[in-house]
């Protein structure tokens, strides 16, 4: 197997997607899970670009990453009393 940048970039993107997906489940703060969700979506979008599906990738950025803001809004407005979870005594 010869070493190319394509392989390195693929390994980086795939591991980013997997690790951030794990972080979504394990994070304590709900907003930290959302950060993980965003990096997972962006890594998957970049994988689409590597598969020559640019339009799907752009729609992934536009729809999923854009709409994640709403997830944070719901996370803040529906689940908290204090501004942050960690402040709850």
């Amino acid at each position: 197997m010869t070493l190319t940048w394509e392989l390195l970039v693929f390994l980086f993107l795939a591991s980013t997607a997997l690790l951030s997906a794990l972080w979504v489940i394990n994070a304590k703060e709900i907003v930290h899970s959302v950060i993980g969700l965003v990096s997972c979506f962006i890594a998957i979008g970049c994988l689409f670009i590597m598969l020559n599906a640019e339009f799907v990738a752009i729609v992934q950025f536009l729809v999923y990453v854009g709409a994640v803001t709403i997830v944070i809004l719901f996370g803040i407005m529906l689940t908290r009393r204090e501004i942050m979870e960690s402040e709850r005594k």
Binding site: V31, E54, F55, F61, L62, V65, T69, M84, E87
Partner: peptide, 27 residues
């Protein structure tokens, strides 16, 4: 870049996430 103009608009739409994150994390 294929679909460059759409890509620029997609990159525009990431910003509210960063702003809301900044606003929330400042506590």
């Amino acid at each position: 870049v294929p679909a460059g103009a759409l890509f620029a608009l997609a990159a525009f739409s990431i910003a509210p996430f960063a702003i809301l994150l900044a606003g929330w994390s400042s506590n």
